[in-house]
Structure formats: C-alpha cells, structure tokens
Design a protein around this nucleic acid. Structure first.
Length: 799
DNA sequence: ATACATACC
DNA sequence: TACTGGTATGTAT
C-alpha cells in the first residue's frame, strides 16, 4: 500500500511487483522492480501494458475532472443518501453465521515439494519459463510469485527450480481435502482446487453436544468403533497415517499432551479440520474465520502459511479490523480499482467509509454499493450452492500464426476441444465468441448469438469460422498476426430432462391443486412444437451458407415463449385446466403459457383489469395505472434491487428489457406511496383500504408492515421491505430468531432463501392486485425459476 | 446483444 | 526464446 515511489512506477503499476500476497512482506521492491523492468522493457508485452496503463490513467483523469465539478451541495445531498443507505445496511448486518475460508498454502508448489523432497529447501515455482502458477515461500523472498513469467523469475532468482504442472495430481489432492470440508459443511463452496468457503454454523451447534470421542485427538487416532457409533453428521475419522508430520500444529495445538482432543470452539474445530488436511495430504492449509465471506477471505490470508485467524462476531471487532485494512486486500478490488481509489486518497477501508458520498457520485451504483458494504465490513453470510455454469471456453497461445489456412485449422481444433467439453456436461449454447490476440497483445472478441443452440464441432466451427473469416477480411490484405486464439460458448439452453422442477410455479398458479409434472411436460411439448416452426421460419428466411448450423438444429432446445408466440400467434393450448392470474385473480382456462402470459401482460397494462373494482375507495384515482410507465417504473425499481443483491438480475433484466425506460416519473405517483397494499393477515383483497394521501413529505408505505417510511429513497425503502419480509417470515415460522434451535427453518434467510420466503409470504396473503405486489410476486417466481433451474420462462412474455 | 475491461485463482 | 487459461462480471455502447 506504499504509494508509487517514482514516475516510472506511477506509470507502470501494471508491471511492477505485486507484493499483495502472503510471504512477500519486506522485500526490496525497488530492486525487484528494476529487474522486472529491465527484463520487460521494449517487449511487445511491455508496450501493450504501457498502453493499457495510459488508458487507466485517462480514466482516472476523467474521474478527477468529474470530481472537480462536484458542488458542495451535491456532496451534501449525496452524503444524506449515503448515510441512509448505510443505516439500512447496518440493520441488515448478520453476525450470527460463522463463515470459514480455507486456502491451501502455495498449493501446487507444496504438492510438488511433498512429492520431491529434493525441492524442499530450494526456491521453486510451478509453471514454465513463460508463466508461473505459483511459487513456494522460499522463492517469494526473491519476489517470485504467481502470474510472473518464468524467465523473469529466473532473473530475480537464478537458482529457481521450475516444475511443470501436474493438474491430475492437484485434482486428486483437491478431492481429498474436499472430503474433509464436507464433514464440516456439506454445502461448502469450492472456489478453485485449493480453496473453499464453508459455513461452520451448523457444525458448531452440533459439535457442542458431541462427546469428546467424536472430536479428533491431535495425537491419537481413535478406534474406528467410536467413529461408527456416531451419526452420519459426525466427522469421519481419518485413517492411520504414521508418517504424517506430528507437532506441526504444536504452537497452537496441544504440544506435549498426547491425549488432548480438539475442543468445541470454532477455532478448535477449524484447527481440527486443518490438522486432518495435513494428516491426509501432508500439506498445510490456512483459514480465516469471520461472520461473512468477505471478511473470512481476508482473514485466511492473515496468518498464512499454516495458520488461522478468527475475527470475533461483534460489530466492534469487525469495524476495528476494517479500519486499517488496505482496500486491495478485499476480494473484487484489483489493480485498477485500487489505483482509482488511491487517486482519491483512499487506501484503506475506513477511507472508503469516509468518502462514500464522493464515491457514490463518481462510481456506478454497483461499485459504490460494494464499496459501502466493504467499508461496513459486510459480506455474504451464506454459501450459495454452486451456480450453473454460464460459459465454457478454450484458448491457446502460440508463436505467431499468420496464415489464414493455419488459423482456420487451429480454430477448428479449438472447436473440437470445446465440443468435447460441452458433451461432458450435455450443454448446448446459442452464443459463440471468438477471441483473438495479435502479436502486439491486442485482444479482440467477436460474438454471434444464434436463434438456435449449437453443440457439435461442426455447428460451433461453422460460427467461429465465419467470425474468423470476417476478421481476416477486415484486415486484408495484411494477415492477422495472431499469438492467441480462443473460442467460447455461452447462453446455454437447458436440456429438457435436466429441468423437472418447473412444476412448483404452475402449482403456485393453480391454487388448491398440487402441481403435476405432466402439465410441465405438456408445456415443454407445446414450446417445442412452436420452436420447430420458429426454426423453420428462421432457417428459410436466412440465406445461410452455414449448412451445419442451420440445418442440423436440435429438437431439444427451448425458445422463449415470446419468440415462439410471435411466430405462431394462433397456436393454442388444448388442456381445459385453469391457471389463476396473479393480477386479476380470474381463472384462465388454459395451461398454454403463451396464452396465459398474454393474459397477464394484458392485465398488467390494463387498469380496469383489477378485481373488486367496486371496492376501490375514494383514492382509487390515485392508484392510477393508466399508462405503461407505472408498471415499468415499478419493474425498474425492483430491478435495481435485484441487481444490488446479486440475485434474479438476469430474469429481472428480462422483465424490464423492453419496458419504456423514459417513464422515470417520481415515485410519488406510484401506488406504494398511497396506501397499504397488503392487509397483513388477510386474504381478502376487499379489505384493502387505500388511504387518501395528502402528505407532502417523502413518505412511502411499506406493503408488509404498513408503517409509514419517511423516505423517498428507493434503496432505503426496499431494504426496509426486505427486512420486514424477513421478520414476517420469522414470525410465520414461529417467532424463531436466527440463533434458533431449529436452524434448517430459518438459516436460509438470505438473498436466495429470502426469495423463497417471499413466495411463502405471498401465498399466505394471497396475491394482491396492486402492481407493486404483483411485481414482488413475479420476482418471487423469477427467483424460484432460477432456483429450480428450469427454463420454461413464464416470465418471458414480459420481455 | 456486443465489445472490451477488470478480477479471481 | 519466453508474459497463461478458464470463468464471471462490470462498463460502455
């Protein structure tokens, strides 16, 4: 965090040594940087880095200009908003979870050292002369680190031994440590081969009541019988491994006491886990213990290698910890963000907090929200199950390749590899992206999204080839002088049989009826029929020289109902079952989602389509919905929140994509402000009693608690609603708190879980006619869709 | 939707 | 001689 020393460094922060990592404290930076510069200067790589550096500098200059134009008044106003947001965020602080981040020490290097004792005392790194993956701690003393090319590392440390990578070996070790992780948190999230987040909360609760014999002794393996006595929740004891290095944990463990057993505290549990890792793999891990992932990550680095650090779960401890924490240590703040922040004299997290008003004016909403969370020491308190992959790619670097013919055949090879990988996961993708890097290190990407999905080599290559051809033609008569080519696929369509869970939403729309997988299947079939006709239309109207891609279209892919609808508007469902519209509450005699969706569309845009019109009271006119802006505004509002929470953003995006965005009227016209939208325990929409609203101040009424909120800041208001919903859910579940004895019921109160509870809540209340509530409900459904991993897309018509 | 940039391991 | 490869996401258009 030392500011750049001299001119050269100021302009070459991209090249200079990054001593952010553990084991690199107190190095002679100047000397090391001098060597790095000497090795790099004049190279194409260096020139390109210089260029990019200047781009960043321009970006910073722009930002400073913007800063200079900010008035005191603007800043004051921003300060008020920022403080409001902060206080809301503060209320959402959850210190009840115990999150652990585990990280193997110099993983690849450690594996190689373990398997080759020769290397033990030598500076070594894993990788090649071109690029290193990691280095051991000995080598780090010379400034040799991951992501450094081997030839430069050799200059820094002529005795450096470079070992090439053995990924199969690392994967095998990774499997071993993951088995151990699973004993402490079956839902742990691996971040890479050597790293994972774990939620220890449940383990710790159970651990309290375990007899000593179920915990692990550091020096004595217990007889197998005692392990077998335990339920499957007990940690599995490791097998005897007499050669394992005893006493390595002595400094923190039970040196000298051969019978000591790991205790019940978090720290003891984590020590036990690390000890088991060491026993099993003869490799050491470090860990961080904290109330959220962001902090746990930083903590795991604190006592690296072979150490752990616990940050107590109190606000005070968290704030103290944050105080002098360099922003660069925080996950998500990299070289560029650091440099931009440094330009604003921000280097630590407390600076971040002090400058939030300014930051909110200079950075995007997502960015400053992240900064704000960081400055408050907030982070995710729950470990999401592993997300569906969003893209898959393969790329290769080589020495200059300029002949078009060779470029095409390389491109085909890449497609072959990619198709093979896709097959393993049964993926089909609609977007193909070609990546090119020329000998000057300039990177280009060219993408094409198809109306159909591709999976085979020929299909992918047909697209990639065209993209490549275009680039070659654009450059001709000069050849493309490439040093890298890559192909990526994304926008996967879900395969039919992989997504059986859609039924829950149908069930939701068929009150009183249990959802049947049959109806879900029908929908798929309907969609597929239309899909075929759509393909027919598209492929017949498109003059496409790309035979494979155009003709060999799969039967399985799904096209969104709205697209299908557009091409086959007359197509109807055949079933006589009904769905209940969440807007007007009328039954719609169809199971055809296209028809049903059109109906909902209509309802949302049509103010007369509210039930119980007659019960609308004097202020009904205030609830005017007579234009699309109203709805789009509400949707837009939700969208902002969804994105801020990192959840549902994709689907929310769909919701609002084609909404008129110019309709950004004041929320004062929105129904939120006018009156209670929900009667807390009532299913009867007639009990709605919209208040007349003459108040002039910024007042919104929470649809959950119905209390007046004195704010017009939507972020603030949304957070309030979120909190309210959570409290309602807790109440519904029997007044349990987060420290409840019944964690399964409430432990998932969090971004993802919350959505599910929203759902419950609204089922209880029944759906309301109010647009904002409908939007809530739709978000719920969206979230459920996401969670259920299916793709029928009941919301797609809102595109 | 596309391109490019940033970030992480 | 020589500066990666894979994935996700943010930013800008």
């Amino acid at each position: 965090v030392t500011p750049p020393q001299n001119k050269q460094e100021r302009f070459l922060s991209r090249m200079a040594l990054n001593d952010n990592k553990a084991g690199m404290e107190g190095l002679d930076r100047d000397k090391i940087n001098k060597i790095i510069m000497e090795s790099s200067k004049g190279s194409k790589f260096y020139e390109n880095e210089l260029k990019r550096e200047q781009q960043v500098n321009r970006r910073i200059e722009k930002m400073m200009l913007q800063k200079a134009q900010i008035t005191e008044q603007q800043l004051k106003k921003a300060q008020v908003q920022v403080e409001k947001t902060a206080s809301v965020l503060e209320m959402s602080r959850d210190l009840s979870r115990v999150i652990v981040h585990v990280d193997m020490d110099a993983f690849y290097a450690a594996v190689e050292m373990r398997d080759c004792p020769e290397l033990k005392d030598k500076p070594m790194a894993v990788g090649s002369m071109s690029m290193l993956s990691t280095s051991n701690y000995h080598a780090r003393k010379y400034g040799v680190r991951a992501a450094m090319p081997g030839f430069i590392a050799k200059k820094l440390c002529p005795n450096l031994v470079i070992v090439s990578t053995n990924f199969d070996k690392y994967r095998a070790v990774s499997d071993e440590i993951r088995e151990i992780f699973a004993d402490y948190d079956p839902h742990f999230q691996p971040m890479s081969l050597d790293e994972a987040y774990l939620d220890f909360t449940d383990h710790l609760e159970q651990r309290q009541s375990w007899p000593e014999s179920s915990r692990l002794s550091s020096f004595e393996n217990l007889p197998q019988e005692s392990a077998l006595e335990e339920t499957d929740l007990s940690p599995v004891l490791f097998e005897d491994s007499p050669n394992s290095s005893l006493g390595l944990l002595g400094s923190e463990g039970a040196a000298g006491d051969a019978f000591e057993v790991f205790g019940t505290s978090v720290e003891e549990a984590v020590r036990e886990m690390r000890f088991r890792i060491e026993q099993k793999t003869r490799l050491t891990a470090s860990a961080g213990i904290a109330p959220n992932t962001m902090l746990a990550k930083v903590c795991s680095d604190k006592n690296k290698p072979n150490g752990q650090y616990r940050l107590p779960s109190t606000r005070e401890a968290v704030m103290d910890f944050i105080e002098n924490l360099p922003v660069r240590k925080v996950c998500g703040i990299g070289k560029v963000s650091e440099k931009m922040l440094n330009a604003l004299s921000i280097s630590t997290c407390s600076h971040l907090g002090q400058q939030m008003a300014l930051l909110s004016l200079l950075f995007s909403e997502t960015s400053w929200h992240h900064f704000m969370e960081v400055s408050l020491g907030l982070g995710s308190t729950f470990i999401p199950r592993h997300e569906e992959r969003k893209s898959m790619s393969t790329e290769r670097t080589f020495r200059e390749l300029s002949k078009a013919e060779e470029q095409f055949s390389l491109c085909r090879e890449l497609c072959e590899d990619l198709a093979e990988d896709m097959k393993k996961e049964d993926l089909k993708a609609k977007t193909v992206t070609l990546k090119l890097k020329n000998v000057n290190f300039e990177v280009k990407t060219r993408a094409l999204t198809l109306p159909y999905a591709v999976a085979t080599v020929d299909e992918i290559f047909a697209v990639a080839k065209d993209l490549l051809k275009t680039e070659i033609e654009n450059e001709s008569p000069q050849p493309l002088r490439l040093r890298l080519m890559g192909v990526r696929v994304s926008a996967f369509v879900s395969l039919d049989d992989k997504k059986p869970l859609q039924k829950s939403i149908i069930g939701f729309l068929q009150p009183g009826k249990t959802e049947s997988s049959g109806s879900s299947k029908d929908m798929h079939q309907n969609l597929e029929k239309e899909n075929h006709s759509l393909q027919a239309v598209k492929s017949s109207t498109k003059a496409n020289d790309n035979k494979n891609a155009a003709s060999d279209v799969s039967e399985n892919e799904l096209v969104s109902p709205v697209e299908a609808h557009a091409s086959t508007s007359g197509c109807g469902g055949t079933s006589s079952e009904t769905l209940t519209c969440p807007v007007c509450f009328r039954r719609v005699e169809t199971t055809d989602l296209n028809i049903f969706n059109s109906h909902i569309d209509h309802c949302l845009n049509d103010p007369t389509r509210k039930p119980n019109q007659s019960t609308a009271s004097d202020s009904e006119s205030d609830l005017d919905l007579e234009n699309d802006h109203q709805e789009s505004e509400v949707v837009h509002r939700r969208r902002g929140e969804c994105e801020a929470e990192g959840e549902m953003s994709k689907n929310s995006e769909e919701l609002s994509r084609d909404s008129p965005h110019e309709g950004q009227q004041s929320l004062k016209n929105s129904s939120v402000q006018k009156g209670p939208l929900i009667k807390g325990d009532s299913k009867d929409v007639t009990s709605q009693q919209p208040q007349s609203c003459n108040s002039k101040g910024p007042v919104l009424i929470c649809p959950v608690c119905q209390l007046t909120q004195e704010t017009d800041d939507l972020t603030v208001f949304n957070h309030h609603v979120d909190l309210c919903l959570n409290q309602q859910v807790l109440h519904e579940l029997g007044g349990q708190t987060s420290s409840s004895r019944n964690p399964p019921a409430v432990k998932n109160i969090n971004i993802r879980g919350k959505c599910v509870y929203y759902m419950k809540l609204f089922s209880t209340f029944s759906l309301n006619t109010n647009p904002i509530l409908c939007t809530f409900s739709l978000c719920c459904m969206t979230a459920l869709e996401t969670r259920c991993e299916h793709n029928v897309g009941i919301l797609s018509p809102f595109k």
